[in-house]
Amino acid sequence: MTKVLILAAGQGTRLRPITNDRPKCLVPIMGESLLERQVRVLKRQGINDIHIATGYLSEKIEQMGFDTSFNSRFDSTNMVESLFSALAFIKACNEDLIIAYGDIIYQDNNLQTLLDCDDEIGLMIDRQWRALWSLRLEDPLQDAETLMMDEQGYVTELGKKPDSYDRIQGQYTGLIKIRADKIASFIEFYQSLDRSATYDGKDFDNMYMTTFLQSLIDANWKVKAALVDNGWLEVDSVDDLNTYEACAKSGELDAFIKLEE
């Protein structure tokens, strides 16, 4: 069995005015919210224990009947803090745990690729990321992050600012799987971190998720790339939404993801 924790505490400022009255995960794409689309894919794979880490306009998610944890400092902290605001849920998890960003959607086969990964940590990595980034951005390199793997497909570096495409063997997509027997150690690692240190230029409360994952890699955790070729979308801005909606109308979006109506 597998449990899921969806991180949905952020304010989605780049999606305003759409997020003036809703959290980012409830932004609609082709008529259905990101959260609803993601939950439907999870449930089709038999994953029904779904917990949401909330913050901004948390009541909108609570009204939908989900079990939730609340990051009371959502407006001054980053995603790692939202993750561990659900510490009680994580501690009680005796099964594999999927951690998912609230602003993504993905196909069933992408999720299955991650579920099939039996390493300590699996990350869904898109090998064909550049096509999607080129759809969204004039200069894909400006918004991309480094991601390097060894010959066995384990991630050795992620989340840095690249100076060339040579440092990008794929893009991390915001979907993580922690193996059941590593969850206690995962928590212990987080709790052992120095709260007074800086992490890639950020204080502890604002550490990036990629920085946290890199810290695990540097501590010799085995982080495996679950490789996919497109089949997912990130919605980060109004421009993203407009681009996806236009491509859906023209039929071009099918090259990136097959969305069920």
Score class of each variant (00 low, 15 high):
Asp150Glu: 01
Gln152Cys: 04
Arg167Thr: 03
Thr210Ala: 07
Thr198Met: 12
Glu59Lys: 11
Leu115Lys: 06
Ile121His: 00
Ile105Val: 12
Glu145Gly: 06
Ala86Val: 11
Lys182Gln: 10
Ser164Arg: 07
Val235Thr: 14
Asp126Lys: 00
Phe89Thr: 07
Ile98Gly: 01
Leu15Met: 13
Phe256Asp: 06
Thr68Trp: 10
Gly251Leu: 10
Arg16Pro: 11
Cys247Pro: 03
Ala53Trp: 09
Gln63Tyr: 13
Asp119Tyr: 01
Asp139Tyr: 04
Ala86Pro: 03
Ser85Gly: 13
Thr146Leu: 06
Thr173Cys: 09
Phe89His: 05
Gly46His: 08
Ile105Arg: 00
Gly31Leu: 08
Trp232Ala: 03
Arg40Asp: 11
Ala226Ile: 09
Asp143Thr: 02
Lys224Pro: 03
Ser185Met: 08
Ala197Thr: 11
Arg136Pro: 01
Ala86Asp: 07
Gln214His: 03
Tyr172Ala: 02
Lys43Asp: 08
Tyr165Leu: 12
Met207Ile: 11
Ala184Tyr: 02
Lys177Ile: 09
Ser76Cys: 10
Arg167Trp: 14
Thr68Tyr: 00
Asn242Glu: 14
Gly46Thr: 15
Val27Pro: 13
Ala219Glu: 14
Ser76Asn: 15
Tyr172His: 06
Asn20Ser: 14
Leu233Lys: 02
Arg127Cys: 05
Glu62Phe: 02
Glu151Thr: 11
Glu81Leu: 05
Glu32Asn: 09
Asn220Leu: 08
Ser192Ala: 12
Arg167Phe: 12
Pro28Ile: 10
Ile183Arg: 00
Leu5Met: 06
Met79Ala: 12
Leu97Tyr: 09
Leu114Asp: 05
Asp49Glu: 13
Leu216Ser: 07
Leu253Val: 09
Glu95His: 09
Leu42Ser: 03
Asn230Val: 05
Thr156Tyr: 00
Leu241Ile: 10
Leu137Pro: 01
Leu158Pro: 01
Leu213Lys: 00
Ala246Ser: 15
Gly122Thr: 08
Asp108Ile: 12
Gln142Tyr: 10
Val155Trp: 00
Phe189Asn: 06
Lys43Pro: 03
Asp236Ile: 15
Lys60Trp: 08
Thr77Lys: 02
Lys258Ile: 15
Phe256Trp: 07
Ala88Tyr: 05
Phe89Trp: 06
Met64Leu: 12
Lys24Met: 14
Leu111Phe: 15
Leu158Ser: 00
Ile29Val: 15
Ala248Arg: 06
Ile98Leu: 15
Gln11Asp: 14
Gln171Asp: 01
His51Ala: 12
Asn109Gly: 02
Asn109Val: 11
Val228Leu: 04
Phe189Cys: 05
Asn230Arg: 15
Asp150Asn: 07
Gly231Lys: 01
Thr54Asp: 11
Ser76Val: 07
Thr19Ile: 15
Asp218Pro: 04
Asp126Trp: 01
Lys43Met: 15
Val41Arg: 10
Ala144Pro: 01
Ala255Ser: 08
Ile121Asn: 03
Gly122Lys: 05
Arg22Asp: 02
Asp118Glu: 14
Asp150Gln: 03
Asn230Thr: 13
Gln171Glu: 06
Ser58Met: 10
Ser33Gln: 09
Ser72Leu: 14
Ala246Met: 13
Met30Ala: 08
Ile50Asn: 10
Ser58Tyr: 15
Phe74Thr: 12
Gly251Arg: 06
Glu261Thr: 13
Thr19Glu: 04
Gln112Ala: 13
Ile168Tyr: 00
Phe70Ser: 05
Thr146Val: 09
Asp254Lys: 11
Thr77Leu: 12
Ser185Lys: 11
Gly10Cys: 06
Ile125Ser: 02
Ile29Met: 07
Ile176Gly: 03
